[in-house]
């Protein structure tokens, strides 16, 4: 059983009170640069997902509470949630620091692109 807590309304419950919405932080390439979307980018957006052993970032919905979507950082080995944060937000810095592999790469790219913008 997972112990989930909604960061929007504070409702706590197990996974049956919430709805898992898959991987978080997926960005639709056409939203950012509609004129130059390659087939590979579109394929990655639609089908390619990260499946890590360890820290993972997911979308969840507070199904039997306020009905809002939010993000969660969860360890896929221990099932422990490291953080719950808003649907438009990035994870807390200390959780980003724990990310490994593809997720570490993702956040590094995201943070550099946002600091440039």
């Amino acid at each position: 059983m997972l112990a989930v807590k909604c960061p929007v309304c504070g409702a706590e419950g197990d996974e049956t009170d919430f709805h898992a919405g898959g991987q978080a932080h997926i960005r639709r390439p056409a939203t950012h640069d509609p004129a130059h979307v390659t087939d590979e980018e579109q394929r990655n957006y639609l089908f390619i997902r990260i499946n890590p052993k360890g820290l993972h970032f997911e979308r969840w919905r507070c199904d039997r509470g306020c009905g809002k979507w939010f993000h969660a950082a969860r360890d896929t080995v221990t099932m422990e949630f490291k953080a719950f944060y808003g649907v438009t937000e990035l994870p807390p810095a200390d959780v980003i620091a724990q990310a490994k592999g593809q997720w570490a790469e993702y956040f590094a790219n995201r943070l550099t692109s946002e600091s440039k913008a």
Binding site: A11, T16, D17, D63, R64, G65, C66, G67
Partner: peptide, 10 residues
């Protein structure tokens, strides 16, 4: 008052 999962329904 709150929404809940009751007998498997909303």
């Amino acid at each position: 008052c709150r929404r809940m999962r009751y007998a498997e329904i909303a």
